[in-house]
Amino acid sequence: MAELKENVNENIFLGESDTDEIEHIPDVITTTSMAINEFLKKTKIQDVINWGRKNSLWFMTQPMGCCGVEMIATGCAHYDTDRFGIIPRNSPRHADVMIISGYVTIKYLPALKKLWEQMPSPKWIICMGDCSISGGPFYESYSTVQNIDKIFPVDVYIPGCPPRPEALLQGFIELQKKIMAKEDHGTDY
């Protein structure tokens, strides 16, 4: 308990957010969910949490380019992503993974940011295809955004034009490995 209390105080000083302030009541230990999270990150329980997270990587069906067609194919029955706990979801509010599947145009970028902000944490990003990594065939176009990794915290890059569904699956598995190794961008360790 002493450790927990210490952590709590530390987090107040980190100032994660203004609304997370802890009310001080004499002889009662109060805390916030943020503080609990921060405490759990330092314990073995985080491994169990990560095991749960890595086995339910629901991704958002948000096809953006031709790669999006491969993404949809991956989500269909033939490749059976369910065995890894990877399920396509239609709403950003249900999703854990955003797949940037194609060219990001200057006009689409604000919408993409909005989708990303609508997703609840913890959340991850997979860059699928040459277009999202570097602009791909459209790297010299007047309307594509380059260096998407400066805008979003990308965890996995899958090169290819388009990558095969197997490659996308491998990308997911790499992401699972990253989550178990606590090296992902979805959580601050």
């Binding site: 570097s134 602009g135 007047y142 260096n147």
Partner: peptide, 12 residues
């Protein structure tokens, strides 16, 4: 038209 990006992406 001059507005094309004249560099490729960094990570290339």
């Amino acid at each position: 038209y001059e507005g094309f990006p004249n560099r490729t992406a960094n990570n290339l």
